[in-house]
Structure formats: C-alpha cells, structure tokens
Simulated assay, not measured.
Amino acid sequence: MISRKSQHWIAWALILPVLMIRGFTTIYPIVRTFINSFFDIRVLSGVNEFAGFNNYLNIFKDEKVITTLKFTVMFVLISMVLHVIFGVALAMILNMNFKGRRFLRTIVLIPWAMPAVVIGMAAKWAFNNDYGLVNDFVRWFVPGFQMNWLINTGTARAAVIAMDLWKDLPFFGILVLSGLQFISGDIYEAARVDGANGSQSFWHITLPLIMKNVLTLCIPFTLWRLTAFDLVYSMTSGGPGEDTSLIAYRITMEAFTNLNVGYASALAVLLFLVMAVFSYMNLKFMNRYND
C-alpha cells in the first residue's frame, strides 16, 4: 500500500510536466518581454544593446504611438459605454415574451461567432464609397451621396467602433439576459400593485438588480477592447495614417513588420500596465457598488 507521503510526491511528479510547459509558454514570454524592453533590439540593423529606459522615453516622443494611445482610450471608453447601453436594451428585448423568442436568441449570436478578421474584411467592402453596402443604402434616401468612410479620420474611427459593437454586443446582451432571468416576476407584480409603471420598474428594480452583473461583464470586455487587433488589421490597417491604430496593432507592427523588438516590448509592457490600471479601476468601482 502506498503511503500518503508517497502519493503526495507521485501527484507532484504527474503534474510537474504540465507546470513546466505552462511556465515556459506563459511565464517565460512575460519575463522575456520585460527584459527586452530595456534593450535596443533592431533585427534588420543587427543591433542588440542595453538601452535602459530609452524605449519607454521614446514612447512619449513618438507621434504615431501618441495617436495610437489616444484612439485606444477613445475606442475603449466609447465602445464600453455603447455596449452597456445597447446591451441592456437588447437583453430587455430578448427577455420579452413573444413568439420566436428562442430563435431570435440563437441567431442574434451569429455576429459574435464570426471571426473578427472576416468581419473586418467585409466591413472594408461595405464602407467603400463606390460599391459599398452602406453608401448604397444611404443613396436610397440621399441620391448622389458620396462618403469615403475609411479615408476620413472621424468616419473611419466611427466605423471601427461600430463594427466592434456589432460583433460583441449580442454576446454582451445574452450575458446580461442571464442576469435578468434571475429576477423574480413577483417583484414586478408587487411594483404594479403599488402603482409603478414600466419605466419606474426598470430604473428602480431591473437596473439595480442587474448592475452587479453588468459591472462584472465590463471587466473582461474592457480588457478585450484593449487587446483588440484583428478587426483594425483587416479593416483599416491602422489608417488613415495612424488614426485607427490600436495599441495591440502598433505593437504587432513594431515587432513583426519593423522588427524593432525592444521598442515593441516596451509598448507591450505599457499595455500590460494600462490593463492592470483598468482592471483595478473596474474592481474598485464594483467593490464600492457592492458596499
């Protein structure tokens, strides 16, 4: 009979290979990125020198990165506000009792299930001025309408945010719907007896009861916005100029196109810190709400 101490060592021996593989594929890249961020590593020039904090200082001198950071913040904030507003509205609609409700709940997830690269490529065609679906629709009401959506800064940014919202809003709404279904109908019945109308029931019953669920969802959805890459890559390639470039896209371009590994590593560390700050802010806000 194997002793308890032997069983303990056998268990560790069995999981040790998995821990080693996980450590090599997760921890090592993170540590290596932090180390590389203090070196000037330019593959094309054959440079590999210690640079100290120069990579970090150069970030705030790089106009391309400044533009990227501004749009990343704009993208995250606007997208999340719209996700919350329209996500709750979508969840309320899907929670109504009507014929075909189950079918609608199923097909509404189709955009979320589609790869972002496919959506980006389709959007690139849809927003084309000459043969795009969007302008073709507008011309039904405004003959001769002309708009180069992805060439102008403001409309290109709006298009990227709109496509991001179109893709992930259904998933956000379905998750909010799961919180709505835990609210007992007896609460609404009691409110109706007390004379509350639909609007009052929403603001004083529905919204407070699902707010914890919504705030919890905001944490991963915010982090997903911060690391968004494929939609911009396939839709605008960061253009016009760098006006729709997100931080994850800029890191990829510096690392794999410009082969400026040290600078890309510094940007990746910056992204890590920004994600940590956003996570902390979300958690603090949620804890304050729970208190």
Rank of each mutant, 00 (worst) to 15 (best):
F34I: 06
G198S: 11
M1N: 07
P220H: 12
I161F: 09
W112L: 12
T222A: 11
V108K: 03
F256N: 08
G100V: 02
I107E: 11
I151N: 09
L109F: 01
L231P: 00
N54S: 14
T72V: 03
W125K: 03
N135Q: 08
G239F: 08
L133Y: 10
L150C: 07
L270R: 04
D291W: 05
G144C: 03
M253K: 12
R250L: 13
F103P: 00
S199T: 06
K99S: 14
T106M: 14
E63L: 11
L177V: 01
T252Q: 15
A123T: 02
F278K: 01
L57G: 06
V269R: 06
R32E: 15
P170Y: 01
V43L: 15
D130F: 11
D194T: 03
T257A: 14
G120S: 07
V31C: 11
V88F: 10
A159C: 05
R288T: 03
N135R: 04
T153M: 06
V88R: 02
N152K: 06
D62A: 09
W112S: 13
G238H: 02
F50L: 13
N95P: 05
L104W: 11
D168T: 06
V134L: 10
Q200P: 00
D243K: 07
T222S: 15
F229P: 00
N58Y: 04
M147D: 07
P17N: 07
A264R: 03
F38K: 05
L14S: 03
V73C: 08
G241C: 09
L215E: 06
P170L: 05
Y188N: 08
I21P: 00
V274T: 06
A276D: 04
S234T: 02
S45I: 03
I2P: 07
A89L: 15
I183G: 09
L223Q: 01
A196R: 03
H83I: 03
H8R: 13
M253Y: 12
G173F: 12
M20R: 04
T33V: 08
M275F: 07
V31S: 11
I41E: 12
L57N: 10
L69T: 02
M121S: 13
S3P: 00
L283F: 12
S199E: 11
A196H: 10
N290E: 15
S234P: 01
I93G: 11
N148G: 08
F71H: 07
C218V: 00
L215M: 15
V277L: 15
